[in-house]
Design a protein around this nucleic acid. Structure first.
Lengths: 203, 203
DNA sequence: GGACGAAGTGGAACGTGTTCCTATCATGTC
DNA sequence: GACATGATAGGAACACGTTCCACTTCGTCC
């Protein structure tokens, strides 16, 4: 398996390189916001980021790597905002539902961007394992924090907690895919996710 | 939204046309089996099915339509085989787990084919709504039949049954994607699905 | 049997993701 | 300051999904 990773922010020594990487991801988000997956064209990203096409490919070895990395950055941003204050809700189910609704609402506010990021995530093949894994871990962490706000370490979670978090993550992704492809409305999505959470977290 | 549907088997009057359609789908499955998603190249499909490229596009307006239609045909085939004898298992959970394991095992026996079909399904956009919906209905039906073998009509299902079937379907798809992209092993997949079913169907 | 429209053939052409090559630029070393 | 080395620019070239066109074949109606 060829494991050509994207250059992560840590690998990049020089400030100019970190700045290039940021410009590339910014351009990606802007284009995705404008016209979704199809509008994120590598030549257009390179031009808007003021970078040569070859450089773009040096930083991100494919369009999918690029978009999944962008998804990772956006999720980290959300996570940081959410962590500023405790998640409201008296039960684990309520808190998880709050988290999902809030995140989903954020994504549904920018349908094109969500379509681009979701489709990239779903289309990714084995070569994007590292980037996908990073996103998966982040999601599980966010969910786990909502379920057990008092615990800060993932290691304290029971197997069942982790299993539940994963199932909820699965449902969320599927719901997102269904919404992105126009198979279900935003309201359907919300209802379906809430139902799933209540089925799983009966406390 | 442009809704260019694939020509379904019923639309095709002449035997020659049904045969062409079959040859195309056969060629698709063969190529997918050989080299996965990337090996299903439209020119190659057309050549192997002994059909002009334009004709291929007349029958299936895109590679994704083609692969999702192929997935539909394979699922119908599985469903027909499964319906020949009652699903074993004493509880709904056991029967659903049997169904999932058996179907998954079948898919994992041909990793390339599964990769091709799964990725097409996940990458599909709004224009493939009709084909995707057909697959979704089939899956829900299969699951519902496993949960309640005595009921033959979908209308007899409760809302909760449908919700559970959908959640299980979501988990199954996500597990398949994770397996296809090399993020989890076949064993992981089986365990994860079994856990999810037991969480959802505690009877 | 001939006319006509639908369906199929063969292949050129286009767009976009990806690769590759050469020249130029930046940075650190002596 | 000259040089070595790696990063970047600029752009040509290639692959494959998709579109299009001119021509041929097939089926049907008169």
């Amino acid at each position: 398996m060829s494991t050509a990773n994207s250059l992560s922010a840590e690998d990049l020594g020089s400030a100019a390189q970190r700045d290039r990487r940021k410009r590339i991801l910014d351009a990606t988000i802007e284009l995705a916001s404008t016209g979704g997956f199809d509008a994120v064209q590598m030549r257009a990203v390179a031009e808007r980021a003021d970078v040569a096409l070859g450089t773009l490919y040096r930083y991100f070895p494919s369009k999918i790597h690029l978009l999944v990395s962008a998804l990772g950055r956006e999720l980290e941003r959300s996570d940081a905002v959410l962590r500023e204050r405790p998640t409201p809700g008296d039960t684990a189910a309520d808190r998880v539902i709050y988290l999902l609704k809030r995140t989903t609402r954020g994504m549904q506010g920018d349908a094109n961007l969500t379509e681009a990021l979701t489709r990239a995530f779903m289309f990714a093949d084995g070569s994007v394992k590292a980037e996908i894994h990073a996103v998966g871990m982040l999601l599980t962490q966010m969910m786990a924090r909502a379920m057990h706000p008092e615990q800060t370490e993932l290691t304290e979670l029971t197997d069942e907690d982790v299993a539940i978090a994963r199932v909820i993550g699965d449902v969320w992704l599927s719901a997102l895919v269904a919404w992105v492809t126009g198979r279900s409305t935003a309201a359907d999505t919300a209802v379906h996710m809430e139902t799933a959470v209540r089925l799983l977290l009966r406390d």
